[in-house]
Design a protein around this nucleic acid. Structure first.
Lengths: 213, 213, 213, 213
DNA sequence: AATGAATGAGAATTCATTCAT
DNA sequence: AATGAATGAATTCTCATTCAT
């Protein structure tokens, strides 16, 4: 669960909200371009067309911006996952193939639209650093939700191994996402391979349990 | 292939070589602890028990240390891979299972011994930054060598898809390695899953080509 | 013509302008005391009663300070020369004697008031270095303006020899200026000799052309 | 009079003398290229093909090298001046024209051969700095010797104004020397003007005293 | 609320000089 | 004597954050 960001001031007026969004938009672009560590708050403010002082009126420090960005992004992702996972839950008995498509396709769509930020969190940065922590929140939430789906589909799996396997799928996806559209150019053949890895792994798990070859 | 680092001074005396090693050892630890960007050359020198000036006698800047570290590590890895891949080549007809073991086990051993540096390069850091570039060299070499093995085993595969798949396996391994011993505690069950993913994926590829289910 | 300095921040508030001036004043003194190379930005900031960070808000590096100083000084000098040279132009037929006085007296006045900076640029420093370059701009402008006067007075002179001679007069003045008030003590007899050199040289040129002895 | 350099060790063997010369040769080139301040002792040692430690066995510090260089150069210059000034003294009654030639031509020859070092001392560098001090010695000696000649030729001149005028001639020569062969390309027309300035000035002085126009 | 000027600790790097081998 | 490794004070410049206007 992502801790809530120590917002310095919760803006009550639309103008404030607009300004906060502008700062977050700018931060997202700047972080994507040079990474979190190398990004400067002055650069973010400049990109947002704001004075640096205003930035600090909304965010107590650089990390708070990162956290708010994670929150904002998580909200969006949550929306996508809500649909995808509900769908998937409904398809509890559907074949693996369509399940994987149902979940991965929306994620790939999000990644296509927000490559910068997704890669930011998925690249993780300094161990124990701010980015790693913010990413942790994201990942934990996603794991929990996927786990619920798998638990529903395969109730005979034990909790711990199940969680581990979900985590592994997530890590695999996270590792391969950047290859699906390097430099913004979509590579469908990579997407196909990504799905193949996930399906093959999930099938292997199922077959082991059910005793299939 | 990682370019060789322009060392500022090639040590002529044993003392110098010892000191260079001490600096590299220190850098490896410091980079592992706080990451490349946050590591300071003064911290590295202090950890090496050396004056900052000595560090700069051997390395023209922080990046040169990173590169030298990559070179040194690559040498070690190359030794391990030489054995592993020769073995694997010898086992051209062996079942997938033993092939994967032959290659992954030595890599896991290296990772166990040198977690810090491996993760450093595998975490990649700022896009286009120094770490990313140094990592590139490493990865390219590893991909090329694995690809040669696969090409020998499965000559019917086309060059491009083959390379892509090798790359994907590498990325998967790279993504899951940190989970195999988080905080230095080995997790055999994660290793088992790592191997499962790789085997399942490789089997899926083989089956598609041979027409198996 | 001295290129205009890329100021990092153009001050919008009066406070900023005051601070920029303070930094330039401090730099002028520090440069005059120890020379450009030996001057440290920290010393300049300290002398200006400013934090080093503020200095770098206005000037992107040490050279930018030097350039801004040249600009500021050139502005002042230009003002003086405007008057002096206009006067001189008006006296196209006046005897050499009064012409030289008209031009040199204001220059000597500037030098008396701003010995430090004038000597800085006139001492030239490291060949091809920053000071030499900044000085170049100054000198070129002065030569061009003097040349225009001479061209008006002595239209029969060819362009190239004329420019050379103007340059030589300038170099002579530049070489002797520091002797006119060493350590701030004015030496009128040196000024007299300076004028004598210049007049004698100019007379010699005129006499050669007109065929006088 | 130039103070004698604190040589750390007066080399007794030819080998040592050769090494000292090599270091001085190297220093002369390096100083000429980048100036005294920017020259590093390591660069000098490298250029001399010597270890830095050896350099410090002969010279106690960077300034000592500069001083030794001045001494060495002064010895050469002294030789040239001995001939030139003796000649000139012999020509006590010769016309100004030939006197100036007798003195300036050898100086111009030295400058042509040793432009680097001559300009080094004549550019003067940081006020009160090492170069300025070393140059002082040189200049004082030259002034004294020229003054003796002039005193012989024009005994009616008072001591102080005479010295001043000699100094002024020297400064003029010093200022114009660099223009006589910028970038190593000799410019005879500049040499002609240089002589014209000197002659015109000296003639003006003589005429004033003798009451000529 | 907004602005942007000010701050200063801290980072990378250089280089004259010393000293162990 | 010679070598070159070691030293560390000093320098330039950055950037997160505060605060006066």
């Amino acid at each position: 669960m992502v801790e809530h960001v120590p917002l310095r001031r919760i803006p009550r007026q639309a103008r404030g909200q607009r300004r906060m969004d502008a700062i977050l938009d700018a931060a997202e672009r700047v972080f994507a371009e040079v990474g979190y560590e190398a990004a400067t708050t002055n650069a973010i403010a400049a990109r947002a067309g704001t004075a640096i002082g205003s930035l600090y009126q909304y965010f107590s420090n650089k990390e708070a911006i990162l956290r708010a960005l994670a929150d904002r992004f998580l909200d969006q992702l949550r929306g996508v996952l809500d649909v995808a996972l509900d769908d998937a839950a409904a398809l509890a008995d559907a074949p693996l193939e369509s399940l994987v498509d149902r979940i991965l396709d929306p994620v790939l769509a999000v990644r296509a639209a927000r490559a910068g930020i997704l890669d930011l969190y998925f690249r993780a940065g300094r161990p124990g650093g701010e980015v790693a922590q913010a990413a942790h929140g994201l990942i934990d939430e996603i794991v929990a939700r996927l786990d619920a789906i798998v638990a529903a589909r395969e109730p005979w799996l034990d909790r711990e191994p199940r969680r581990l396997r979900v985590r592994i799928v997530l890590e695999v996806v996270r590792a391969l996402l950047p290859l699906t559209a390097p430099g913004g150019v979509p590579r469908p053949e990579v997407i196909a391979e990504l799905k193949r890895v996930v399906r093959a792994y999930m099938a292997a798990i199922r077959d082991e349990v059910t005793g299939n070859p």
